[in-house]
Design a protein around this nucleic acid. Structure first.
Lengths: 222, 222
DNA sequence: CAAATACTGGACTGTATGGTCCTACAGTCT
DNA sequence: AGACTGTAGGACCATACAGTCCAGTATTTG
């Protein structure tokens, strides 16, 4: 475990570098093919391991690999994707909009392949493997709570009766559904349209009628 | 092929009754476990076939079975689930609301298991099998066009700038995402909340601001 | 009755899989 | 030099799977 490479190499311990490589390779494969369809041999080939025993030196089982891939995937997502939601210098509602845009952009970059790793895994494993189901449920809980924090921060601009938990779940559901549909159609405009509508829905929770959503609403009711 | 049952039975040929049984059994299994995780042997056991050769008497391959299960699943859905959308005696927007409720109720009845067969299959097969991907994409196209017809029918009550295609896709995406999240959490209230928000979103497309209770139709348009 | 037709049931092939085990080599430490 | 350790590489096992083949048995039909 305390492995270091020689004096020519970096001085920090590269413990688990191999492990990390395996995790990364497996994340790509699982994201593309799903968990069951990704074999240990695939992972070995992709991460240039020497053989099965080498793999099993780092992981006790395929399940352990899968769990850690999922954990890592969410950490990455929290650090990179969800980070926008916490940017302190940007208006909260603006951040939410940027976050949605970033998801759309990432999906476009992938050529509408792969969708959401969490949604894909959820569909595959929810009824097949309780351990995965619980971990994926946790992922969505944490994702939703990030959005809730943002909503809480923006509460002066929101109507009093906004249910932050419900709204955060709705946002995630629309995005996940949009990713799935855009993926199956291989058409980014599907997701773009959903993102647009989603933003309009978010906008109706604002106190003052806002630009994007201003469809000349006849506020003259009452 | 020309099998008939005796004089006591119906006089029409019950050709393909066995086939239909297999399809039904396979639909249940595939809906629960996915396509890859459902083996031919599972299907044989579930539909009480005598052996592999018997199965291959009706289907050329597992792929053929999968395709027909998907087709059948959508036909069923169009006849039963989507039928509400076409009820001529009910107000269009009311129908849409009832349709959403029926999906929620069906999911509750299943104990939040299984989710949407189309969404599940889409997640599993979109990047793995082009044939399935195309068929599933078609399913969503047809589903969306049913909603568009309804929206077209209701257009006097809708704002002029309502994009029926986009809205229909959004509705499906939210429902699919909601089913997925509700399934992974095993919590029907997740889907209920999403259904509620979805209805609110739909409501903002109406010309007259609609109260939750006010079902008053100003038919006096034109 | 006899031929054709459908159903039954299992043996078998080839491939893929998760997982274990064993041997061999290279470098390190004493 | 000799013990120890991590890496390599592969043989191996048990299981599962899609798909084929065939031999035997009802059942119908000419």
């Amino acid at each position: 475990m305390g492995l270091r490479i020689g004096p020519a190499g970096p001085s920090f311990p590269i413990v688990n570098t191999r492990r990390a490589q395996i995790l990364d390779a497996a994340a790509v494969l699982i994201g593309r093919q799903g968990y069951s369809a990704t074999s240990i041999d695939d992972v070995i080939k992709e991460s240039r391991l020497s053989g099965k025993s080498h793999f099993y030196h780092y992981f006790r089982s395929k399940e352990e690999l899968g769990f850690e891939v999922l954990d890592r995937q969410f950490e990455r997502f929290a650090e990179r994707g969800l980070a926008i939601l916490r940017e302190p210098m940007i208006d909260p509602m603006e951040r939410l909009s940027l976050f949605i845009d970033s998801l759309v952009a990432a999906h476009a970059e992938r050529g509408c392949h792969g969708g959401s790793p969490f949604g894909t895994l959820a569909a595959e494993m929810s009824d097949a493997h309780e351990g995965f189901r619980l971990r994926i449920a946790q992922v969505f809980v944490r994702w939703a709570s990030q959005i809730q924090s943002l909503l809480w921060e923006a509460r002066p601009r929101l109507h009093d009766d906004v249910d932050a938990l419900r709204l955060s779940r709705f946002i995630i559901a629309a995005l996940e559904g949009g990713l799935m549909m855009s993926r199956v159609k291989r058409d980014i405009t599907v997701l773009e349209g959903i993102a647009l509508d989603l933003k309009r829905f978010i906008a109706i929770h604002l106190r003052e009628p806002e630009g994007v959503a201003s469809k000349r609403r006849d506020v003259a009711n009452a």
